[in-house]
Nucleic acid binder design. Structure first.
Lengths: 145, 145
DNA sequence: GTAAATACCGATTGACTATCGGTTTTTAGT
DNA sequence: ACTAAAAACCGATAGTCAATCGGTATTTAC
């Protein structure tokens, strides 16, 4: 007789689930198209990859349940839109996948820099410095307000 | 009669697969412990999470086949070790999960900065600037060599 | 040469995406 | 109010993958 309990858990991050290929495509679609219903999404993907309207509908529903799409019912159809802007999503994604491997004191971004710096060119370094300056300015003006 | 072919593919990135909870734990273990065999890994995890030696063995094998662990046979047991250092792994991970969502011209790191900057404190900004300077220095000395 | 340690094989379970047929619900128009 | 169309909803199936572990084949040490 087992006197213990085995608990299985998958994913502890922001999303706690993985994204399939179609889900990724649909997300990208909604970063280009503010609002669309299932029919429109289906029309958009029918040519490039096929698939039935039902497949699109259940994918939209899955993304909605994951909190990645928002929806409102308008007459008899749901209108979907991205729940997060692309960059915010990417940020959460990075946090999600890295948090298991980064230590508390070590910022994810700093880890990312160390990890990716080998691929950086001068232009990107300049851009990054510019962003840091810009961000510093924002902090300071907030503090003095 | 179907005259078309449906191709399913999951993941196109560096790893082209996902990591389970145990796999993550084992990876982290090998970033702290340079070399270990299945028995040692099992001994380490037995207390905290249980599981049989076989489970550890197949997990090690899976990580090996994914290229995340290296192994050499020593007498009758494989000795495993991390194939990638932690930060390199994190870098590839970030690239992997973001590449579907970032545009070619936009560096992943720059995207990461924009995404994560809301969480940055002054210390981390300083650290980042320091890293940029350091990295610039490295580039320059390589160029003049 | 045998016993112990380890690798190897294969099966099962559970989670998740993709897919789509069929049924129910909702709404618009008459 | 009735009906037809549209859409949502339900449920089934297949494929991928991690986790798990029993059983068998190898390998090595003595």
């Amino acid at each position: 007789m087992k006197d213990y309990l085995i608990v299985f858990s998958r994913g502890a991050g922001v999303f706690s689930m993985n994204l399939g290929e179609l889900e990724k495509l649909v997300l990208k679609y909604f970063w280009q198209t503010p609002v669309a219903d299932a029919k429109q999404v289906h029309a958009h993907f029918e040519r490039s990859r096929g698939g039935s309207l039902n497949t699109i509908q259940s994918t939209l529903d899955r993304l909605y349940k994951k909190g990645l799409l928002a929806r409102t019912k308008e007459s008899h159809a749901y209108k979907y839109q991205a729940a997060k802007q692309r960059k915010a999503f990417i940020g959460e994604l990075i946090q999600d996948v890295t948090q298991d491997f980064t230590h508390g004191s070590e910022g994810n971004l700093v880890a990312a820099f160390v990890s990716l710096s080998a691929d950086l060119n001068e232009t990107q370094l300049n851009e990054l410095e510019r962003l840091i300056l810009e961000y510093r300015g924002k902090i300071n003006s907030e503090e003095s307000a």
